[in-house]
Design a protein around this nucleic acid. Structure first.
Lengths: 215, 215
DNA sequence: CTTACTCACAAAAAATTTTTGTCAAAAGTA
DNA sequence: TACTTTTGACAAAAATTTTTTGTGAGTAAG
């Protein structure tokens, strides 16, 4: 899931980037203008805007975006006191807000909540550079989008969910097929071959006699 | 068998060295004085002296040597005409002579004849640097003398006689033992091990599954 | 006491088996 | 039909096992 973060406080932004990057793909900017151009050039799944930034405010930015029918869900960050903006924020199309100082876990909860709301729960970040939509089976990787088949997608997701652990062929068969329609292990081998074309050989490692490991 | 050759004619000496080196160990010198000092420093099995050399003559040299009880067999080389020296030569202790120009095979025959006479037939040249006395089992190598056991000596001789050919363990067993007392192939392995200590690993090469080759 | 040989085990090389990678193509599915 | 899934054949790679060779110690015979 791709997040566009607008935050001018260097300390806070670095904390946020560190935290959010564990789970999402984060693009960060200090200025409203850049945020605007970034949102035009790319497509994001979530905006997180600080209300007060040097060259404007998040509310104006959001109003602008919404006028172009950009319905990307948006969370505002606001100073504890400054709840005066609240009403305006929601009027301009905000979906949630969070007051500084805040607990990172709270932010995480709110993001997950929005994901649920907007049906984004099936976008999974794989490593630093890739994202997989587990419904459409689209794999996004450095602006390039690949169309995986369903099985490829399932296998990739399974490997990712158990990354850094060696997973045997049998385990994969057990978990990705039902008992009546187990294929031979040949099927896994060809799937692995295909996946490697997309995610790169270096990420799917074979441990002889044991299985495969996603890194 | 080690030969000391005294011959000042460069053409003839190079021919002689080439020919004799195939069978014997040859040390060559142009001058009588050097011949004298060489004979004192080393021990040779045969002298081949030209009667006429720049700084003296072979006869004087031989007389000198004999006076020190050096009984090394000696062959003189003399010009066809100048048989006048003949008597003096024999008186001074020569064992044979050969007249220029001569056939190399003739020289070879005379040398072999002397070997027979003096019981030197069991000295065999191995490669460029070694000699094996097949009776005493003494292996001479760069001034160092090693005492081989009988079997070591027999094996080395067999290998040498068939050098550059791969010889199987079975062939060695067949040829170096009699039928009733064939040892196991272990015996060969230990003999090879010992021989390699003497002649150097590089000269006895193993061809896996086939045998050993002397080079 | 030396020699000839055997034995046990280490080291090296080769042969064999197992596992994995790859491709083409068959079979299944919408 | 077009696409996904699976299979099967074979190549490539890795591991295992077997065979051969090297080495030192030790024994028996002369």
């Amino acid at each position: 899931m791709k997040i566009l973060l607008l935050e001018d406080d260097t300390v806070l932004s670095s904390i946020l980037i560190d935290f959010l990057s564990e789970t999402y793909s984060v693009t960060h900017t200090y200025s409203m203008k850049e945020a605007l151009s970034l949102s035009e050039e790319n497509s994001y799944d979530l905006y997180i805007f600080d209300i007060n930034v040097p060259d404007g405010d998040g509310i104006t930015l959001l109003r602008e975006l919404r006028s172009f029918h950009d319905e990307t869900p948006t969370i505002f960050i606001t100073a504890f006191h400054d709840i005066s903006y609240l009403k305006k924020a929601f009027e301009s199309g905000a979906n949630d807000f969070i007051r500084k100082p805040f607990d990172l876990e709270e932010l995480y909860g709110r993001i997950e909540n929005i994901k649920r709301h907007f049906g984004l729960f099936n976008i999974v970040k794989l490593g630093d550079a890739m994202e997989l939509n587990t419904q459409t089976h689209l794999l996004t990787c450095k602006d390039k989008t690949e169309h995986l088949t369903q099985k490829e997608s399932e296998l990739l997701l399974y490997l990712y969910k158990h990354k850094n652990r060696v997973i045997s062929t049998d385990e994969l068969l057990q978990n990705l097929w039902n008992y009546e329609e187990l294929p031979s292990s040949d099927a896994i081998r060809t799937l692995i071959k295909e996946l490697r074309k997309y995610v790169g050989r270096e990420h799917i490692i074979n441990i002889r006699g044991e299985g495969y490991k996603f890194e």
